[in-house]
Amino acid sequence: MADLKGWKELAIGGVIDKPSTAKEYQTGTWRVIRPVYKPENCINCMFCWLYCPDQAVEIEVVDGKPKMKGFNYYYCKGCGLCANVCPKSNDKLPEEKRAIVMKPETEFQD
């Protein structure tokens, strides 16, 4: 507990005096399956972005339109909701045609 603050250093009242401090907290370590993004199959419908409970879908605005960039694995917990709501990733489509493919973490080195 060496890096924890002492009582004199903390804001009083249990208040967290800055917003968004949880962004420092890595939830990606929970993940056992990983969504892998295949941009070539993506239609940028933004469903994955809308539904990601962890805001781990990164997007950017290009020519005034939102575009999928990929996943932020620092936060992604691997729930798979993105792939489930993706119109280009349903079970009937072969894997190579899907925009999001769920793969076990064991397949990755990092």
Partner: peptide, 15 residues
Amino acid sequence: ITQGHRLCPGCAAPN
């Protein structure tokens, strides 16, 4: 609401 919350994976509440 931001990233880094510890709700279960796939929870509907943060949405």
